[in-house]
Design a protein around this nucleic acid. Structure first.
Lengths: 225, 225
DNA sequence: AATACACATCGATGATTATCGATATATAAG
DNA sequence: CTTATATATCGATAATCATCGATGTGTATT
């Protein structure tokens, strides 16, 4: 039988620095080993195991074993979007060290937000789409126009295929560095994939930042304001 | 200067049963005194003060003093929508006592979700709007049709006025009891106000549930499936 | 004025829990 | 087969923090 949602089970899991570190690392949408996550969270690997077990029990992460490694990833987009929401309402932390700052700058430039393109790159592209009436933003909801369909087809994304995928086709995703929208949903993911396939961007496995290749520079040039 | 969002500051606040009780109580969108909130959270009033102070510091609640009472309310719709999101991804708690169950049943029937109508009543109304093509739901985004404008005008809601209000005009809001949508945004709020003004519903200040009056029964009859 | 009430502050306490070292198990490498 | 590596389990510990009683402050009631 149903009952009240047990909020505390969710929020207690979120209220730990190490687990947050793990979760934000997994926000790149890729798989990571326990050791990788331990290094990011700056705790011993068995402590990381302990955390991952809890995250597994809540079905927030899923794992698969391969050889002596265990690979973990976020198990649902809901978690990613919850984390984004939290990032957007949280106060910002002062950046102290040089390393922290350079990491912040990289993430601000471009990053994977659960497999779609976020940061300055993502937002520039989004604004380009709006200005050219390829998409229309109204009341927090997003629509692809006919002109937009033609545009995406022209760069090699088959809209009819994407529309068949389950999940949300298109949605605006609030970006925590830019405080404005980038392209989310299946279309956002398709665009990210395209950029990876065509070698426009390279995803850094350490911190989910992306950097532009030289061909990427050319491709993204028209989108810069 | 900007930096990383301090997620932990947000999540630690959320990870406490008493504070969650306070926040969900405030989800009705009304003002409550410290004593009221203490009773709901089942802690002493000075413990409640301690919690409210923290919530204030994060700007999640705001207060105003009147006489010897201090009235608290949620300070932004963001918080309400975050809580809704958390409710929707949290596992459900078993209902044990008779009282808990009857409270759950009341909330399931109808309640205020930060000033719009949620629960079975809200969802029935939403479905009615969809079936009659007054609203159109696509990709998680919601649109009011021309037919819809006429409908809302006919029951006494002036769409042009609502559109002028700042904030989101219309949005689907995922309902944690029904696991489907009800009407949110300024239009949702306007509808809730109308129902209160015309005395179709009465809001229970204890637990944010709403009950139908006899004239409300008549008004909501066409919406039932 | 005197009393009752609403709310807030402070210091103490007890419960929770993240972390670690030690240990165990499984797999890979040599 | 031996050694190194990756992950997980267990018990102990140390830090955090929600709660309370005692107390203080301001406001209403009589």
């Amino acid at each position: 039988m149903n009952g009240f949602p047990d909020l505390q089970k969710t929020t207690k899991i979120l209220a730990d620095q190490s687990r947050l570190e793990i979760l934000t690392t997994l926000m790149d949408g890729k798989f990571h080993t326990v050791n990788e996550l331990a290094k990011k969270a700056k705790v011993k690997s068995h402590t990381t195991s302990y955390h991952l077990k809890q995250l597994c029990q809540l079905n927030w992460v899923s794992s698969y074993k391969q050889g002596r490694n265990v690979y973990y990833s976020l198990s649902s987009e809901d978690i990613a979007s919850l984390l984004e929401k939290l990032m957007n309402i949280s106060p910002t932390k002062e950046v102290h060290s040089f390393n922290e700052n350079s990491e912040y700058q990289k993430l601000k430039k471009g990053r994977s937000c659960y497999k779609h393109l976020a940061g300055n790159l993502g937002v520039s592209f989004f604004n380009f789409l709006v200005q050219n009436q390829h998409i229309k933003l109204e009341n927090n909801s997003l629509m692809l126009t006919i002109k937009g369909i033609q545009y995406f087809e022209s760069i090699g994304i088959e809209i009819t295929c994407i529309k068949k995928q389950k999940g949300i086709f298109i949605k605006p995703c609030l970006d925590w560095t830019e405080r404005t929208f980038h392209l989310g949903g299946n279309l956002g993911r398709a665009f990210f994939n395209l950029c990876e396939e065509k070698n426009f961007i390279i995803l850094n496995t350490e911190n989910r930042s992306v950097c532009l290749t030289s061909s990427g520079e050319d491709f993204f040039k028209p989108f810069k304001p």
